[in-house]
């Protein structure tokens, strides 16, 4: 694991890792261990990592990335994609399941895609992560105020209200969204949609 928990490829020569006496695969498994940090019970794989992948904003690029994951047997836990401030590029934030393949192999195979410009691996402790959740919940009038209070505590927003249901929007760290989801489960969830996380390296 290199200092700072951020490794990136695209311009760096990966041979440098090996030259430092640690083989590349050693580096990869070191990174993987670090990812399995103890923490609150989360949805998703225990050994996951976040890759921030800068790609050319061209048609078919997402298909290339998805096809690579599928063909090589890598598992994606979540994936979010949107254009960057430079219209030539998009950023794909992908949470990968490290049970399926070593991180190093996933990064190297991704980097071989001609449309992939650079890849940064963001260790959870060194990244700001956010996710958005939309949930339509059943609301019994008797507990409506309780639910509104819960949304308040989580700094969520009620974005739509029906006679027996309401739709909530909540943004935050994925773990916070997990907790909220757990708490509202008993009220009855009609529909729920999460975006998958987006992340940036901490400054």
């Amino acid at each position: 694991m290199t200092a700072g928990g951020i490794r990136s490829i695209g311009n760096a020569n990966p041979g440098a890792d090996a030259a430092a006496g640690a083989g590349m695969a050693v580096t990869a498994s070191g990174a993987a261990d670090n990812a399995a940090s103890p923490g609150p019970a989360k949805r998703g794989p225990a050994r996951s990592h976040i890759l921030s992948v800068l790609v050319e904003n061209k048609s078919g690029v997402l298909a290339r990335v998805a096809s690579l994951f599928s063909r090589r047997g890598f598992n994606i836990y979540s994936l979010a994609v949107a254009p960057t401030d430079n219209e030539r590029f998009s950023r794909i934030t992908v949470v990968v399941d490290l049970e399926s393949a070593p991180l190093e192999q996933i990064m190297m195979q991704l980097d071989k895609l001609v449309n992939v410009v650079s890849i940064a691996e963001l260790a959870p402790s060194d990244a700001v992560q956010r996710e958005l959740l939309l949930a339509t919940l059943k609301v019994d009038p008797a507990v409506r105020s309780q639910l509104v209070e819960l949304v308040d505590i989580f700094e969520g927003k009620i974005v739509d209200v029906g006679s027996a249901s309401l739709t909530v929007m909540l943004a935050g760290e994925p773990e916070k969204l997990d907790s909220f989801e757990n708490l509202v489960k008993d009220h009855g969830i009609v529909d729920i949609q999460r975006t998958g996380r987006v992340a940036l390296q901490k400054l």
């Binding site: 590349m24 695969a25 990869a28 190093e104 192999q105 190297m108 195979q109």
Partner: peptide
Amino acid sequence: IDPAELGKIRRPDIAIRG
């Protein structure tokens, strides 16, 4: 020359991309 081959099957003690 393909860094993805370095360590794909067998972990190398020295990996040289080139």
